[in-house]
Simulated scan of single mutants.
Amino acid sequence: MTGTSPRVAVVTGATGGIGRAVVERLAADGMSVVVHYANNAGRADEVVQAVTAAGGSAIPAPADIAEPEQVQALFDEAEQRLGGVDVVVNTAGVMLLAPLAELDLADFDRMQRTNVRGTFVVSREAARRVRPGGAIINFSSTVVKLALPTYTAYAATKGAVDAMTLILAKELRGRDITVNAVAPGPTATPLFLDGKDQPTIDHLASMAPLERLGRPEDVAEAVAFLAGPARWVNGQIVYVNGGVS
Protein backbone atom coordinates (compact mmCIF):
# COMPACT_ATOMS: atom_id res chain seq x y z
CA MET A 1 0.00 0.00 0.00
CA THR A 2 1.37 3.35 -1.01
CA GLY A 3 0.35 6.42 0.99
CA THR A 4 -3.44 6.58 1.22
CA SER A 5 -4.12 5.02 -2.18
CA PRO A 6 -6.40 1.95 -2.20
CA ARG A 7 -4.90 -1.51 -2.25
CA VAL A 8 -5.19 -3.16 -5.65
CA ALA A 9 -6.44 -6.70 -6.25
CA VAL A 10 -6.24 -8.78 -9.43
CA VAL A 11 -8.97 -11.44 -9.52
CA THR A 12 -8.78 -14.08 -12.26
CA GLY A 13 -11.97 -15.77 -13.41
CA ALA A 14 -13.77 -12.72 -12.08
CA THR A 15 -16.98 -13.26 -14.06
CA GLY A 16 -17.70 -16.70 -12.51
CA GLY A 17 -19.94 -17.27 -9.51
CA ILE A 18 -17.21 -17.25 -6.87
CA GLY A 19 -15.00 -14.84 -8.82
CA ARG A 20 -17.68 -12.19 -8.99
CA ALA A 21 -18.47 -12.56 -5.29
CA VAL A 22 -14.76 -12.12 -4.52
CA VAL A 23 -14.56 -8.99 -6.67
CA GLU A 24 -17.59 -7.44 -5.01
CA ARG A 25 -16.36 -8.28 -1.50
CA LEU A 26 -12.83 -6.93 -2.03
CA ALA A 27 -14.26 -3.77 -3.62
CA ALA A 28 -16.60 -3.36 -0.65
CA ASP A 29 -13.52 -3.63 1.56
CA GLY A 30 -12.06 -0.64 -0.26
CA MET A 31 -9.77 -2.28 -2.80
CA SER A 32 -9.55 -1.31 -6.46
CA VAL A 33 -10.10 -4.52 -8.40
CA VAL A 34 -8.91 -5.73 -11.79
CA VAL A 35 -11.75 -7.88 -13.15
CA HIS A 36 -10.04 -10.51 -15.29
CA TYR A 37 -11.95 -12.37 -17.97
CA ALA A 38 -10.99 -14.86 -20.66
CA ASN A 39 -13.62 -14.36 -23.37
CA ASN A 40 -16.78 -12.71 -22.09
CA ALA A 41 -16.18 -8.96 -22.08
CA GLY A 42 -19.89 -8.32 -21.58
CA ARG A 43 -20.00 -10.21 -18.30
CA ALA A 44 -16.84 -8.46 -17.13
CA ASP A 45 -18.44 -5.11 -17.86
CA GLU A 46 -21.50 -6.18 -15.82
CA VAL A 47 -19.26 -6.95 -12.84
CA VAL A 48 -17.45 -3.63 -13.17
CA GLN A 49 -20.74 -1.75 -13.40
CA ALA A 50 -22.09 -3.53 -10.31
CA VAL A 51 -18.99 -2.60 -8.34
CA THR A 52 -19.10 1.00 -9.55
CA ALA A 53 -22.82 1.31 -8.76
CA ALA A 54 -22.07 0.18 -5.21
CA GLY A 55 -19.44 2.91 -4.87
CA GLY A 56 -16.39 0.75 -5.54
CA SER A 57 -13.56 0.84 -8.06
CA ALA A 58 -12.95 -1.80 -10.75
CA ILE A 59 -11.61 -2.15 -14.28
CA PRO A 60 -11.94 -5.06 -16.73
CA ALA A 61 -8.90 -6.75 -18.27
CA PRO A 62 -8.69 -9.76 -20.62
CA ALA A 63 -6.07 -12.53 -20.65
CA ASP A 64 -5.53 -16.20 -21.34
CA ILE A 65 -4.01 -17.00 -17.96
CA ALA A 66 -1.98 -19.87 -19.40
CA GLU A 67 -0.08 -17.48 -21.69
CA PRO A 68 2.77 -15.61 -19.94
CA GLU A 69 2.73 -12.59 -22.26
CA GLN A 70 -0.98 -12.05 -21.71
CA VAL A 71 -0.61 -12.38 -17.94
CA GLN A 72 2.26 -9.89 -18.01
CA ALA A 73 -0.01 -7.48 -19.89
CA LEU A 74 -2.71 -8.03 -17.26
CA PHE A 75 -0.33 -7.01 -14.48
CA ASP A 76 0.96 -4.12 -16.58
CA GLU A 77 -2.61 -2.86 -16.84
CA ALA A 78 -3.02 -3.05 -13.06
CA GLU A 79 0.21 -1.15 -12.45
CA GLN A 80 -0.34 1.49 -15.10
CA ARG A 81 -3.98 2.23 -14.32
CA LEU A 82 -4.18 1.53 -10.60
CA GLY A 83 -0.61 1.98 -9.39
CA GLY A 84 0.48 -1.52 -8.46
CA VAL A 85 -0.68 -4.93 -7.24
CA ASP A 86 -1.23 -5.94 -3.61
CA VAL A 87 -3.55 -8.96 -3.81
CA VAL A 88 -3.86 -11.68 -6.43
CA VAL A 89 -6.74 -14.18 -6.30
CA ASN A 90 -6.69 -17.16 -8.67
CA THR A 91 -10.35 -18.15 -8.94
CA ALA A 92 -10.23 -19.12 -12.63
CA GLY A 93 -10.85 -22.84 -13.06
CA VAL A 94 -12.35 -25.59 -15.19
CA MET A 95 -14.13 -28.66 -13.79
CA LEU A 96 -14.96 -31.59 -16.08
CA LEU A 97 -16.08 -34.79 -14.36
CA ALA A 98 -15.90 -38.45 -15.36
CA PRO A 99 -14.51 -41.68 -13.94
CA LEU A 100 -10.78 -41.93 -14.61
CA ALA A 101 -11.25 -44.85 -17.02
CA GLU A 102 -13.70 -42.81 -19.10
CA LEU A 103 -12.26 -39.29 -19.03
CA ASP A 104 -11.31 -37.87 -22.41
CA LEU A 105 -7.66 -36.77 -22.35
CA ALA A 106 -8.66 -33.54 -24.08
CA ASP A 107 -10.72 -32.70 -20.98
CA PHE A 108 -7.79 -33.65 -18.76
CA ASP A 109 -5.47 -31.37 -20.74
CA ARG A 110 -7.97 -28.51 -20.65
CA MET A 111 -8.18 -28.67 -16.86
CA GLN A 112 -4.41 -28.92 -16.52
CA ARG A 113 -3.93 -25.90 -18.77
CA THR A 114 -6.24 -23.62 -16.78
CA ASN A 115 -6.08 -25.00 -13.25
CA VAL A 116 -2.38 -25.87 -13.06
CA ARG A 117 -0.51 -23.97 -15.76
CA GLY A 118 -2.78 -20.92 -15.39
CA THR A 119 -2.36 -20.81 -11.63
CA PHE A 120 1.40 -21.28 -12.04
CA VAL A 121 1.77 -18.50 -14.62
CA VAL A 122 -0.34 -16.04 -12.61
CA SER A 123 1.43 -16.96 -9.37
CA ARG A 124 4.82 -16.49 -11.01
CA GLU A 125 3.90 -13.00 -12.15
CA ALA A 126 2.39 -12.27 -8.74
CA ALA A 127 5.59 -13.40 -7.02
CA ARG A 128 7.51 -10.90 -9.11
CA ARG A 129 5.17 -7.93 -8.68
CA VAL A 130 3.04 -8.06 -5.52
CA ARG A 131 4.04 -5.31 -3.12
CA PRO A 132 5.10 -5.86 0.50
CA GLY A 133 2.09 -6.40 2.74
CA GLY A 134 0.33 -8.24 -0.06
CA ALA A 135 -1.33 -11.62 -0.46
CA ILE A 136 -1.54 -14.34 -3.09
CA ILE A 137 -4.64 -16.54 -2.76
CA ASN A 138 -5.02 -19.65 -4.87
CA PHE A 139 -8.06 -21.88 -5.27
CA SER A 140 -7.91 -25.51 -4.26
CA SER A 141 -10.91 -27.76 -3.54
CA THR A 142 -12.23 -29.90 -0.71
CA VAL A 143 -12.49 -32.81 -3.19
CA VAL A 144 -8.72 -33.27 -2.86
CA LYS A 145 -9.33 -34.84 0.56
CA LEU A 146 -12.88 -36.14 0.01
CA ALA A 147 -11.74 -38.31 -2.94
CA LEU A 148 -15.18 -38.38 -4.57
CA PRO A 149 -15.64 -40.64 -7.61
CA THR A 150 -15.55 -38.86 -11.02
CA TYR A 151 -13.38 -36.04 -9.59
CA THR A 152 -10.01 -37.75 -10.19
CA ALA A 153 -8.60 -35.43 -12.83
CA TYR A 154 -10.03 -32.25 -11.31
CA ALA A 155 -8.78 -33.15 -7.83
CA ALA A 156 -5.36 -33.89 -9.30
CA THR A 157 -5.16 -30.34 -10.64
CA LYS A 158 -6.10 -28.94 -7.24
CA GLY A 159 -3.53 -31.15 -5.52
CA ALA A 160 -0.97 -29.46 -7.75
CA VAL A 161 -2.30 -26.06 -6.64
CA ASP A 162 -1.85 -27.12 -3.01
CA ALA A 163 1.81 -27.97 -3.65
CA MET A 164 2.50 -24.70 -5.46
CA THR A 165 0.86 -22.72 -2.68
CA LEU A 166 2.81 -24.30 0.17
CA ILE A 167 6.16 -23.98 -1.58
CA LEU A 168 5.66 -20.43 -2.88
CA ALA A 169 4.86 -19.27 0.67
CA LYS A 170 8.36 -20.40 1.67
CA GLU A 171 10.03 -19.00 -1.44
CA LEU A 172 8.69 -15.51 -0.63
CA ARG A 173 10.46 -15.45 2.74
CA GLY A 174 11.37 -11.92 3.73
CA ARG A 175 8.98 -10.25 1.29
CA ASP A 176 6.02 -9.74 3.71
CA ILE A 177 3.71 -11.51 1.24
CA THR A 178 1.38 -14.29 2.35
CA VAL A 179 0.48 -17.22 0.10
CA ASN A 180 -2.54 -19.36 0.91
CA ALA A 181 -5.25 -21.35 -0.83
CA VAL A 182 -8.94 -21.63 -0.11
CA ALA A 183 -10.51 -25.03 -0.68
CA PRO A 184 -14.27 -24.66 -1.11
CA GLY A 185 -16.65 -27.54 -0.58
CA PRO A 186 -19.89 -27.93 -2.55
CA THR A 187 -20.85 -24.40 -3.52
CA ALA A 188 -23.91 -23.31 -5.47
CA THR A 189 -22.30 -21.94 -8.62
CA PRO A 190 -23.02 -22.69 -12.29
CA LEU A 191 -19.64 -24.50 -12.51
CA PHE A 192 -20.65 -26.84 -9.68
CA LEU A 193 -24.33 -27.33 -10.49
CA ASP A 194 -23.87 -27.99 -14.22
CA GLY A 195 -24.84 -31.54 -15.15
CA LYS A 196 -25.99 -32.59 -11.66
CA ASP A 197 -29.53 -33.84 -11.03
CA GLN A 198 -31.51 -32.70 -7.97
CA PRO A 199 -30.93 -35.87 -5.88
CA THR A 200 -27.17 -35.44 -6.37
CA ILE A 201 -27.36 -31.78 -5.38
CA ASP A 202 -29.46 -32.66 -2.32
CA HIS A 203 -26.96 -35.33 -1.27
CA LEU A 204 -24.02 -32.95 -1.59
CA ALA A 205 -25.90 -30.29 0.38
CA SER A 206 -26.51 -32.81 3.18
CA MET A 207 -22.80 -33.60 3.59
CA ALA A 208 -22.09 -30.48 5.65
CA PRO A 209 -23.25 -30.38 9.29
CA LEU A 210 -24.82 -27.03 8.37
CA GLU A 211 -26.95 -28.96 5.83
CA ARG A 212 -26.73 -26.63 2.88
CA LEU A 213 -24.53 -25.86 -0.09
CA GLY A 214 -22.03 -23.07 0.31
CA ARG A 215 -22.72 -19.72 -1.28
CA PRO A 216 -20.19 -17.72 -3.31
CA GLU A 217 -20.36 -15.06 -0.58
CA ASP A 218 -19.21 -17.64 2.00
CA VAL A 219 -16.06 -18.28 -0.01
CA ALA A 220 -15.51 -14.58 -0.71
CA GLU A 221 -15.57 -13.94 3.04
CA ALA A 222 -12.64 -16.30 3.54
CA VAL A 223 -10.76 -14.71 0.64
CA ALA A 224 -11.30 -11.25 2.14
CA PHE A 225 -9.88 -12.49 5.45
CA LEU A 226 -6.74 -13.82 3.77
CA ALA A 227 -6.44 -10.72 1.58
CA GLY A 228 -6.72 -8.29 4.46
CA PRO A 229 -6.40 -8.88 8.20
CA ALA A 230 -4.93 -12.40 8.16
CA ARG A 231 -1.26 -11.43 8.11
CA TRP A 232 -0.24 -14.37 10.32
CA VAL A 233 -1.98 -16.99 8.19
CA ASN A 234 0.57 -18.14 5.63
CA GLY A 235 1.30 -21.32 3.70
CA GLN A 236 -2.11 -22.80 4.50
CA ILE A 237 -4.92 -24.59 2.67
CA VAL A 238 -8.07 -23.14 4.25
CA TYR A 239 -11.10 -25.42 3.91
CA VAL A 240 -14.25 -23.37 3.34
CA ASN A 241 -16.87 -26.08 3.30
CA GLY A 242 -19.25 -25.86 6.25
CA GLY A 243 -17.59 -28.81 7.99
CA VAL A 244 -17.65 -31.41 5.19
CA SER A 245 -15.19 -34.20 5.93
Rank of each mutant, 00 (worst) to 15 (best):
E24D: 07
R25L: 06
A27H: 05
A27D: 03
A27F: 10
A28W: 10
A28D: 11
D29C: 02
G30I: 00
V35D: 11
V35E: 11
H36T: 03
A38F: 04
A38K: 11
A41H: 13
A41N: 02
G42I: 02
G42P: 06
G42R: 14
R43W: 12
A44H: 09
A44E: 07
D45K: 12
E46T: 13
V47L: 04
Q49T: 10
A50I: 00
T52M: 12
T52E: 02
A53F: 10
I59T: 08
I59P: 15
P60M: 03
D64E: 14
I65H: 15
I65N: 06
A66P: 04
A66M: 04
V71Q: 13
Q72C: 04
A73K: 09
F75P: 05
F75K: 07
E77G: 04
Q80G: 09
R81E: 04
R81I: 06
R81T: 14
G84F: 02
V87W: 00
V89C: 02
T91A: 10
A92L: 09
A92C: 12
A92D: 04
L96R: 05
L96I: 08
L96H: 15
L97Y: 14
P99K: 12
A101L: 07
D104R: 08
A106K: 15
D107M: 02
D107L: 12
D107V: 04
R113L: 08
N115I: 01
N115Y: 07
T119H: 11
V121Q: 10
V122N: 15
V122T: 12
S123G: 14
E125P: 01
R131W: 01
I137L: 14
I137R: 06
I137S: 09
N138Y: 05
S140F: 07
V143P: 11
V144T: 12
V144C: 05
K145N: 06
A147M: 15
A147W: 04
A147L: 13
A147Q: 13
L148S: 11
P149W: 09
T152A: 14
A153L: 04
A153C: 08
A153T: 14
T157M: 14
T157Y: 05
T157H: 08
K158W: 13
G159T: 11
A160R: 04
V161Q: 03
A163E: 04
A163V: 13
L166M: 14
I167D: 07
I167Y: 05
I167N: 11
L168K: 08
